[in-house]
């Protein structure tokens, strides 16, 4: 039982982390986030389902198509919901993305349908035994893919030209402009990447759970809690916080039952922020007068 629960915890945790990295990456370049990251995740799952199951596309076509559409969604979020407000120094992007999340959830509900659907995948149908519990290949893949993407993000940022351009925008956007870097574009790309991460999480989680218009809401909130707990500006912190959150959830479920997971985890979020306002792994920033 412990193994199975911990495996679920790590799996869920790495998906929270993936979504939270989406918050992280837009935050560092623009100090803004898509508050409706959960809807982007849902969109990924719904698009994946529609391509794979409804229209029967082969998987090698369905996945790129889903990710491309998600990236376009991310670009649209930045262009229409964030930039109009952040460029005039307003923080109304927060409400705008919340509203857009509700809008997208409802649009999907009316087009995709109100009933949850099952995203069947060959990866969940077979199973093998591991430490006394049956494990499907997907369950093992989820944390691995999560970690791989986080690692890839780190490597790209550290070792590629694109990554350095991104870093430049993070560390000193004004100087980046002087180098001829179009910071606006980098911010837009960050939103696209953020939506793609969410879509990957959505497609990975869907076969274990189900696909519905409402699947992202709670997930997105938890991922946001993870991002905040990790100290949203620190990628490593965010990933660690994701795993921690998933494990705490799993452990609370084992010992107290799933009814208490939300009380415990969200109370912990309040407590953690009360004690460490910049997140568990964040660092204090000096305010200049």
């Amino acid at each position: 039982m412990i193994t199975a629960a911990l495996l679920t915890g790590i799996g869920l945790g790495s998906m929270y982390a993936l979504l939270a990295l989406g918050f992280h990456i837009t935050y560092v370049v623009s100090r803004t986030v898509n508050f409706a990251q959960g809807s982007a995740m849902m969109l990924g799952a719904v698009l994946g389902y529609s391509f794979c199951i409804t229209w029967g596309w082969p998987i090698w076509l369905a996945i790129p198509a889903t990710l491309t559409l998600s990236a376009i969604y991310g670009l649209a979020v930045e262009r229409f919901l964030v930039r109009p407000f952040s460029s005039r120094g307003s923080d109304a992007w927060l409400m705008a993305t919340v509203a857009a999340g509700i809008l997208v959830d409802n649009l999907v509900m009316f087009t995709f349908g109100k009933e949850p659907r099952q995203f069947t995948s060959s990866l969940t149908e077979s199973a093998f035994s591991l430490l006394g519990t049956q494990v499907s290949p997907l369950q093992l893949m989820i944390p691995l893919i999560g970690a791989a993407i986080a690692l890839a993000l780190m490597l790209v940022r550290r070792y590629t030209r694109l990554g350095k351009v991104l870093e430049a925008c993070v560390q000193n956007p004004r100087a980046a402009m002087l180098m001829g870097i179009r910071v606006n574009w980098v911010v837009a790309i960050a939103f696209a990447v953020s939506a793609v991460f969410a879509a990957i999480a959505g497609m990975l989680i869907a076969p274990l759970f189900n696909v519905s218009a409402e699947m992202g809401t709670l997930f997105g909130l938890k991922a946001f809690a993870v991002a905040i707990l990790g100290g949203i500006a620190s990628a490593g912190g965010v990933f660690a916080a994701g795993l921690l959150f998933g494990l705490v959830e799993a452990i609370v479920t084992i010992y107290f039952g799933s009814a208490f997971t939300q009380i415990f985890t969200f109370a912990l979020v309040i407590l953690a922020l009360a004690l460490r306002p910049d997140g568990l792994f964040g660092s204090k920033t000096l305010v200049k007068v």
């Binding site: 508050f35 946001f224 905040i228 969200f266 979020v269 922020l273 306002p277």
Partner: peptide, 11 residues
């Protein structure tokens, strides 16, 4: 900002 929003949501 977003941190405050999170605390109220959690509450």
């Amino acid at each position: 900002g977003p941190y405050l929003a999170m605390i109220t949501i959690a509450f």
